[in-house]
Write a protein that binds this DNA or RNA. Structure first.
Length: 238
DNA sequence: TCATTAAACGCGT
DNA sequence: ACGCGTTTAATGA
């Protein structure tokens, strides 16, 4: 039913941003040092505090990165959807993960072993280019999040969140359809369910998306990006 | 007073 | 069983 779920891993890796520019030899090493698993919705992919031994890739599906508190509450940092990779920071720093990774829906997750990651880090220039570009994009994302949380309206925050899930570098998904509940989208954006719902409908009225049951269809990604950008003098004016 | 939130309820998928 | 729309009650600006 979903071809991405049972496609051979080596083929799936070819569609990732970092694999495209690797040599055949490098790709062979990368492929041999990577395995994959399918996770049902709601299952922990990488627990908080685990010593990072793998780089994590979302072959298909969607995960959230959050910190879970003792009382069951959690704050979500980011969502990573199809085509995105995460955890390079913990690998490079040899630290235990300061966050947990949870599947938001059934997802196929790839794990690249530390030795393989370090080999690519050591020997492949294009892999390093990819890493820098990814870290740069991630940094820009977090800077925008801080800025945004201080001055943007809920609608703009939702627009930003949706655009982030379809970020060409961080989650280069070929699909423009996001299968995510409004509550989870709200969590990803730090908003209540009501606020997420309201924002989605405003964006729908602007013709940027279609809202469907369990799904959001992005019709105009560029429009979403500009909807997420604050124009001086218009902030907080819903 | 007005806006926003979590919790609860009922309906539809 | 889950997601979505709505209501309600509490909270705070």
């Amino acid at each position: 039913m979903n071809p991405l779920l049972d496609e051979p891993l080596s083929v799936a890796l070819l569609r990732t941003g970092w694999a495209a520019t690797l040599s055949a030899d490098e790709l062979e090493v990368a492929s041999r040092g990577t395995f994959d698993r399918i996770y049902p919705a709601g299952v922990v992919v990488a627990p908080l505090g685990e010593v990072a031994e793998h780089w994590i890739g979302v072959i298909c599906g969607m995960v959230k990165v959050d910190t879970s508190l003792a009382d069951g509450k959690s704050t979500t940092f980011i969502g990573v959807s199809t085509g995105g990779w995460l955890g390079e920071g913990s690998l490079l720093k040899r630290e235990s993960r300061p966050y947990e990774v949870v599947a938001l829906k059934e997802s196929r997750i790839a794990f690249m072993s530390r030795p393989t990651f370090e080999w690519l880090y050591e020997y492949s220039l294009s892999f390093n280019h990819f890493l820098i570009s990814q870290l740069n994009a991630r940094l820009a994302q977090f800077i925008s999040m801080v800025e945004r949380s201080r001055m943007h309206s809920p609608t703009e925050i939702i627009a930003f969140g949706l655009a982030s899930l379809l970020h060409p570098k961080l989650s280069p998904s070929p699909s423009q359809t996001l299968l995510i509940s409004q509550e989870e989208l709200g969590k990803l954006c730090g908003l209540s369910r009501q606020a997420a719902n309201k924002g989605l409908h405003q964006l729908m009225e602007q013709g940027l998306i279609d809202v469907e049951y369990r799904a959001i269809l992005v019709k105009d990604l560029e429009g979403l990006r500009s909807a997420a950008r604050v124009v001086p003098g218009t902030e907080r004016s819903d």
